[in-house]
Amino acid sequence: MTSVASKRLYQEYKHLTTDPPEGITAGPVSEDDLFVWEAIIAGPEGSPYEGGVFPAELKFPKDYPLMPPSMRFLCDLWHPNVYTNGNVCISILHAPGEDPNHYEQASERWSPIQSVEKILISVMSMIAEPNDESPANVDAARMWRERRPEFEKRVKADVRKSLGL
């Protein structure tokens, strides 16, 4: 039994394994269930997150690609656009109809023509360049805006801790 969603997920999986974008690895956790993926994103170079490795979980709805997946980091990530529980707040993951913060362009939001690859690339660039207009983590956003050195210090410490250094 293959649904539209699982076919497309397999197609994307194949594409991501044969031609992965730099710093990104992603695939289903188990071959039994194509609807739960794990992704690993490398901290972007030139950002305080550089050198870090951030695992995340992607959960796809049954009507993917009509609806976007949800994404949650499985590690602590101190970032203005990541909720403290790890959920990622990024416009590409918001379904066309919903706009929790009423500032997003429709073209920035999820559409079936997007893909896992594009999500992960967007998240990677979001990590490098936080958007503090609609922070998910207000404390992190304030720290990022007002006390940048402290923010960077904390992030670097987190990265080192996560790597066991």
Binding site: V4, A5, D32, D33, V36, P61, K62, D63
Partner: peptide, 12 residues
């Protein structure tokens, strides 16, 4: 896969 007999969303 998506309709009334779709498996539960939670878990495989």
């Amino acid at each position: 896969t998506q309709g009334g007999r779709a498996p539960n969303q939670n878990g495989p």
